[in-house]
Computed example of a mutant assay.
Amino acid sequence: MLTSGSPAPQMVLEDTAGQTVRLSDYQGKHAVLLYFLRSTSCPVCNWHVRGLAKSGEELAAADVHVLLAVPEDLETAAAWKAKHRIPFTVLTGRSGTPHEMIGLSRKIFGSMQQSGGILIDSQGIVRHAHGATMPTNGLDRKGITAALVSLRAPGPIE
């Protein structure tokens, strides 16, 4: 799993329209909150997405672009986005899952998909990273809020 202060991962993903999306595409433009759902069928993860949608205006005002990463294939992700009218870009992996790319899968009797989130500032630095096996803990709202506040804090007076 990533740590705060590390460079953003060089992830190349695909949106539900089949377009290539790189996290580096946002560098110099917006901060990015990337939420990793355990699966599109996880009711708790869907609850977190609804909460993010309710906070959409606040996040946009803070210049944060929300992306959702799902472990399923492109067709499943597109159907889920349409069915639930998801207002955010939904991403899948081209080879492997987005979760595997940052270490969000845990090996217990095979493999267990984890959920979590990373907040990357507009300069491409991870400001918050959190992962959880239990989806109820997958979206660390307090940690994300604290990281957002620190992004807006003025620098030291010179």
Rank of each mutant, 00 (worst) to 15 (best):
L34W: 08
T3E: 11
G143K: 03
T20D: 04
L67N: 11
P156L: 11
V44R: 13
H48V: 08
T20P: 07
M11S: 12
G28Q: 10
P154Y: 03
Q123A: 06
F109S: 11
P7Q: 06
K81D: 03
R127M: 09
G155P: 01
M134E: 10
A69Y: 06
A147M: 05
G96D: 00
G93Y: 10
V49S: 08
T133I: 14
Q10M: 08
S111A: 12
N137L: 04
P156V: 09
D73L: 06
A147D: 03
G117F: 01
G28N: 09
G28I: 11
T16Y: 07
P9S: 08
S55T: 09
C42Q: 07
L23Q: 12
G110C: 06
G117A: 15
S115T: 03
Q123M: 07
V12L: 13
K29P: 03
S6G: 13
G96P: 04
K142Y: 00
K83C: 00
D15C: 12
R85Y: 01
A31V: 09
A62S: 14
A146C: 03
L68G: 11
P87V: 11
G124N: 02
I102F: 05
P9Y: 01
M101R: 15
D73I: 12
D73F: 02
H30C: 03
V126Q: 02
H99N: 13
V70E: 01
T97I: 05
S6E: 14
T145F: 01
